[in-house]
Design a protein around this nucleic acid. Sequence first.
DNA 1: GCAATGTTTCGCCCGGGAACGAAGTATGGA
DNA 2: TCCATACTTCGTTCCCGGGCGAAACATTGC
Lengths: 237, 237
Amino acid sequence: MSHGPDIARIGALIGDPARAAMLTALMSGKALTASELARVAGIGAPTVSAHLVKLAEGGLIAAEKQGRHRYVRLAGAEVAEALEALLGLAQSRGHLPFRPGPDDQAMRRARVCYDHLAGELGIALYRALHAGGALALAPDGVALTDRGHGLLDGLGLDMPALMRARRPACRTCLDWSERTHHLAGGAGAALLTRFRELGWLRPRQTSRALRVTLEGERELPRLFERLGQAGQGPPGP
Amino acid sequence: MSHGPDIARIGALIGDPARAAMLTALMSGKALTASELARVAGIGAPTVSAHLVKLAEGGLIAAEKQGRHRYVRLAGAEVAEALEALLGLAQSRGHLPFRPGPDDQAMRRARVCYDHLAGELGIALYRALHAGGALALAPDGVALTDRGHGLLDGLGLDMPALMRARRPACRTCLDWSERTHHLAGGAGAALLTRFRELGWLRPRQTSRALRVTLEGERELPRLFERLGQAGQGPPGP
DNA sequence: GCAATGTTTCGCCCGGGAACGAAGTATGGA
DNA sequence: TCCATACTTCGTTCCCGGGCGAAACATTGC
C-alpha cells in the first residue's frame, strides 16, 4: 500500500464540473458571493451551498459572512498555485474548453492568477526582471536582489511593507498558457496592484482576463525595456 | 462563463481513490503491470483495465504492451510535476493517509519523484548545488552554470548526453514533504541514477521511498558538503 | 496441441452524490 | 412592521460510474 497525502480527496473536489468552474472563477482573486458562483457554474443556489461546504471542508476556499452575503475566496496562494499547475496539465493534455473563443486570446495576453499577473504580460514582466538582475536564486526558490529591491522601490511599491510581511516576496508560478514561469508572491501581487493603480490594466467583470488600457499598451513595454536594460550594467550581488 | 483549460476532467481522473492510488504508485517512476496496479489499488483486474483506459484517454499515463503484460507508466514529467503539486496541497490541507506509519518517515527522508530524488535528501542535494554555485536563474527556470557543469561531470554524469537531450537539464519541482524545491529535469534524473549506480540508494519493492545504504549514509553528506564548499571560491558566470 | 497466466469485454448491481423544489432562517431596507 | 433578498436545510429524484463475476481473448511455456 503506497503512502503519502490523500490526493484523491482533492482530486474529487476539483473533479466536479460545477466546483471546477467555481474554483476557476475564484482564480481571479476576487471574493465572489454564493449567487455569483451559482451563475458562473450554471447551477442553483442550494447546490452551490452544498458545494461550498465541501470545498471549505477540503480547505480549498475560505468564506466570510458579510451582511446577508457570503463572500468566498480561495484559501490561499498555495491553492491557487496547485490549480494553476492543474490548468497547465489540462492545457497540455488537450483538455480545452468547448471552443477557443475571443475571450481565450485575452486570457493568454494578460490575466489574474489569484493575485498576480499571468499570461504574455506576466512572462514579459518576469523576463524583464530577470534580465535586469532583479532576481536571484535562493535556497528555497527565488529572491529579490538589492538591485531588484531598488527597481521595485522606484516603481512606487511599498518595499518596507513587502519585507515586513510574513509572505515570501518572490515565488514562481507555472503559467499554463505560456508554459513557463511568472512572478508570484508578495512582489508579484504588489506589482499587479500597482499596474492597476497606474491605470495600465483593468479587471473585467466576467473573466480573469485583464484589459490592457491605452496607457498600458504604451507604458508596459517601455517599463519592461527599462527594467531589462538595468541588467546591462555591472552585475549585482 | 469563465474560460481556460478543462480542469474538471483531470480532477475527476485523479479524484477516484483507486486511480489516485495507481497514479501515486506510478510516481515511483517504475513501469508497473496492470495486475501490480490492481494489488496496489486493492481492486480487481477488470476494474483496473477500465481505469487504465480512462487514464490513457486523459493523457495521464502511457501504456505499452510487452508480451502478455501491459506496462504502464506516467505519461511524462509534466504529469509527475502536477501530481507532486497536488500531493503538496493535500499535505498542507491535512489530507493525510489513515495513519502516518513507519513508511511515512522513510518517504520523508528520501523517495523517488518520477525519476529524480525528493525528500530531505533531495532538498539537501538542491541546497548543496545552489550553495556551490552550480545553478543560476534562467529566463525559463533554472539552468546549470559552467561550474555546475563541471561539478556534475566530476560526479561521472554523461554531460554530453545531458546537453544533447531534448529535455531541459534543470527543472524544479515542489517537494510536498519539505515544502520547498528540489531538482528535477534531466540532471535531476541523471543524479538519481548515478546515486543508485554508486550503491548509495536502493529502490524498495513496495513504495516510492528509497533505502539509504551504509555507503550512502557516509558518502552523501560528504558529497553535499563538497558541492556546497565549491561555492566558497570566486562566483561563477 | 494444451494448460497457465495476464488482460479485456460484457452484463449486471449498487451506492454515492449532484441537482432541484419547497420551506426555513438571517439580514437589510422601506 | 413587513417585504425582499441571500443563503441554508431538508427531502426527493435520478443518473453516473465504480465494482465484480463470468467469459472471451491473447500470449507464453511445456
